[in-house]
């Protein structure tokens, strides 16, 4: 008993004040990239060719954050002249095409569906479905339940049964072997319901794009309402997206 109390004192209060107070992640964190539109075309071409995810469009100088795995290679190749990854983790969008960017993203709160805010703003229950990824997205979603993030203080919970859920939060490129389970789970959620695609895999197939063993794009299977980019999305990216979209 004494040990429990001693540990409790040592641990203290650890929950972040985000979103009331901003969090500055360490400068090396690779978040939302900023692109220099005036970059030399040869450098852009070099970056586009080097990109393992084929996420850079040479003609428009845009990066597709739905494909990008934030490996930072384009920053290295261009020595920061084409792209620089900033420590900004706020990247969720309500539409797929908004993820094609020069660096700025539309304010998510204004683009979310207003009836979702009304329905789920005070209480949101989500059923998570892990569908063929590498488990990093799941791991960094799970940590939202740890004391630092403490997701439930916002009235948002991940629940066991789809019957208790207001929507699904899908990670992974939807392997063929998970296709039916994703559909069955979605069907079990009562209407009206939300679909969230979390991580490069669920948005575009991620590192596994082109594989014959995956669907590769959740939106081709179910209508996606909210996109959370990253490989995996930082927990704060997910938290920001959920708060902006539903609150």
């Amino acid at each position: 008993m004494l040990k429990i109390i001693k540990n409790r004192f040592e641990q203290g209060h650890r929950t972040t004040k985000y979103p009331e107070e901003p969090i500055n992640l360490y400068k090396r964190f690779r978040g939302r990239p900023m692109i220099d539109m005036n970059c030399d075309v040869d450098v852009v071409r070099q970056c586009a060719e080097a990109c393992p995810q084929e996420a850079i469009d040479e003609a428009t100088c845009q990066i597709d954050l739905g494909k990008c795995v934030f490996c930072g290679l384009c920053e290295t190749v261009s020595e920061g002249k084409f792209a620089k990854f900033t420590p900004s983790f706020e990247m969720g969008t309500a539409a797929r095409n908004e993820l094609l960017t020069h660096g700025s993203l539309p304010a998510l709160a204004q683009h979310s569906k207003q009836h979702f805010k009304k329905l789920f703003g005070r209480s949101l229950q989500l059923r998570q479905i892990s569908a063929g990824g590498c488990n990093a997205c799941e791991a960094d979603t799970n940590v939202l339940n740890t004391p630092f993030f403490d997701l439930s203080r916002f009235g948002i919970q991940f629940v066991a049964s789809p019957r208790h859920a207001d929507g699904i939060h899908v990670t992974g490129p939807v392997s063929k072997n998970m296709r039916q389970a994703v559909l069955t789970t979605w069907e079990a959620v009562p209407e009206p319901k939300v679909v969230i695609a979390s991580g490069a895999c669920a948005i575009s197939g991620g590192p596994f794009y082109g594989s014959k063993d995956i669907i590769g794009d959740l939106n081709s299977l179910l209508p996606v309402d909210l996109y959370i980019p990253g490989c995996p999305p930082h927990p704060l990216t997910t938290l920001h997206a959920l708060l902006q979209f539903f609150k």
Partner: peptide, 27 residues
């Protein structure tokens, strides 16, 4: 259920994709 064809991809995709796939065999 998580089968996504990693080995097949590693044998067929351009070399530039390998490190990304290697890091996502198990996150």
């Amino acid at each position: 259920y998580q089968h996504r064809g990693v080995e097949h991809l590693l044998q067929t995709v351009p070399m530039k994709r390998l490190p990304i796939l290697g890091e996502t065999i198990a996150g």
